[in-house]
Amino acid sequence: MMNFKKWVGIIVSMTVLIAGGSAFILPLKEKHKILYTVKLSGNEHPDKVPDSIISKKSFLEAYRVLMSPRCMNCHPSGDAPLQGDDSHVHTQGVVRGKDGKGMYALKCSNCHQPKNIPGVGMPPGNPKWQLPPASSRMVFQGRSPRELAAQILNTKENGGRNKAQLVAHVVNDTLVAAGWHPEQGLTLPPLTHKEFARQFKQWLDKGAYLPD
């Protein structure tokens, strides 16, 4: 097991102030503001004692987020991202490309800017907007909880991430965080980012059991 740092600051690219259901966007300079922290524990800690019931339950909680349009839309079963709360195929027919950043005249950053643009239906933003690369497609769409859990743990499929790196991705990655700062008019994932990260980590801490 890795030695975890005792605390990991959760860094998000943007703060979110929910006002009338729409995201208020702060300029990029405001990034790296620590909003909240999650306590991580070492091997010896009682939190890490395997418990299949808690572990599976935690994954099922996290799964609700993973399968929400805000996460699943960029983890599609095909090579085109999905859009909207109905997870329709991206209207411009954008495709993944080798690096996950689109192809030819339809590279992600041709439309997706470093930050959201206000307005319903406008392209959401992130400095590194992309799909998982072709080498680790990390499909969520259509996966059962058990299939998805297994896939997340499989380093051949998950981009070579160990458990600590998986947690770090879920906690720190600004693209993951972008799920909680969607463009105007779109729903948020069913859990807060913090709660999602807690459940995800608990699933791993409690033994990373595969749901039945």
Partner: peptide, 23 residues
């Protein structure tokens, strides 16, 4: 005005950006 149609496409450092949403 929302990167749906591509009529505003220009090259920004060689990439075909939609200038209507590129600040």
């Amino acid at each position: 005005g929302m990167a749906q149609c591509g009529a505003c496409t220009v090259h920004l450092d060689g990439e075909a950006v939609r200038s209507c949403v590129t600040l």
